[in-house]
Design a protein around this nucleic acid. Sequence first.
DNA 1: AACAATTTTCCACATTATGAATATTTTTTC
DNA 2: GAAAAAATATTCATAATGTGGAAAATTGTT
Lengths: 255, 255
Amino acid sequence: MKETADTTRIQVIDRVAALLDAIARYPEPVSLKILSAETGLHSSTAHRILSSLIDNRFVERDPAGRYRLGIRLLQLGVRLHRNIDLRSIALPYMEKLRDKLNESINLTIREGDVVVYIEKATPNRMMHVQQIVGSRAPLHVTAVGKLMLGVAGEGEIHGYAQRTNLPAYTRNTLSNLPSLLEDCEAAVKRGYSLDNEEAEIDVGCIGVLIYDSTGSVAAGLSVSAPIERRKMEWVKDLQEAGKAVSAQLGYHPPD
Amino acid sequence: MKETADTTRIQVIDRVAALLDAIARYPEPVSLKILSAETGLHSSTAHRILSSLIDNRFVERDPAGRYRLGIRLLQLGVRLHRNIDLRSIALPYMEKLRDKLNESINLTIREGDVVVYIEKATPNRMMHVQQIVGSRAPLHVTAVGKLMLGVAGEGEIHGYAQRTNLPAYTRNTLSNLPSLLEDCEAAVKRGYSLDNEEAEIDVGCIGVLIYDSTGSVAAGLSVSAPIERRKMEWVKDLQEAGKAVSAQLGYHPPD
DNA sequence: AACAATTTTCCACATTATGAATATTTTTTC
DNA sequence: GAAAAAATATTCATAATGTGGAAAATTGTT
């Protein structure tokens, strides 16, 4: 009766899935008796699994003792849905920027101590900054990474510096804590950040952040160019695109 | 360190929650090593729990062996979100109907062998059909219940008849299987159903169904009136409201 | 108020999930 | 391209957990 190898199944997880599906079949809260019947579980077994699901907020129980799906499923589902949508929402704005500035536009998200490039819009010119989707770069050598650190706070910057020891990638890399702190805080205040040949000689970037409906940082948006071509007038274009994407993700900036 | 009584916790479920949260913190797929580190679980333990979560489609694993949240969380989260929204979407349409027809409008959902009244719009006239939100009625004596059975198919109707023995509520109740089958099938064909004093003498109803984005029956919408006031011209109004609510729930009728 | 139905708790133990060890695969380094 | 390192995947004896039958408690029905 088992669909997969015995050794991968964990009985409790199978039972959790069955219980959640049974609850999901009922728009209104459903009784223990029905759930026990629909899953074939003994009522005391169903009761204890449901109690643990309640503790973990996968399920809720109303005062009459009936069960419904819990908020955590909504949160996880929304999180998943949001990740699917981020790229598709951002890409049109990135392409507009690419066409207007005629430079490389990148979308990144934070993954621990690095940023990961998840989307790009590449200009149609021979000499442009090439970035590979899926590749990673340390936070402290990227414009958006420094913004992400700055928004996260001084304690996070300290922790990051301790963990990574701030390796230098070029002679311009901010390899000491006071410089990094100062740069990150200044970037947050300005609402944009710069990479001044810190990751790679001859390459300069401008970065802004994208926020989601919870007010959290969802992603970073940046333009990269050969340093002699970079223009500060691009800041406004980038900030506008960042705000537009954030708005589509449901972000409402504080007044 | 445990937040609730020892007896309600199931260790595997706690661990599942921790793993799902850890994955959720990363928009891109995340490695086993990171998940093991973030949850404090032995890597072989994390691996086996994740494998079982994959079997149950709570998690997915990409070819590189990294993990991300699975489609089932989206489905459960969307289902929950939909249930929250159904009432608020339907209510304005119910109020319009109430104002136009000047009779009681009810929103119901199926719960096993009964319909449950989850919303109502009551006319401002002394004599009207009164229905209590939260109350239940057997499927076979309600207009929408007969439609729900009809859509579910002949086998479901057989099963329902066997389980309930089709108790009579009035002399008009369809208490034998052939009559019920015929009435349900005809209702599906017409796109609406009638309650001809089957639940209560002197009360007549017209019912339609509301569908969701998966094509499933989400709810029933009905108008109830003293039988001598009931008008067949209300069918069109009810069907239009049913379609409008279905469309807002993301339903696209087949061509 | 009595009775029925359902939920909740208890607990001995049958059964499962665990994690250390090992095997296999993938990634990194030279 | 080969070797080393790192990571993932599998195995299996057993420690520990989750189970379900019974009982107690609570809620609903008549």
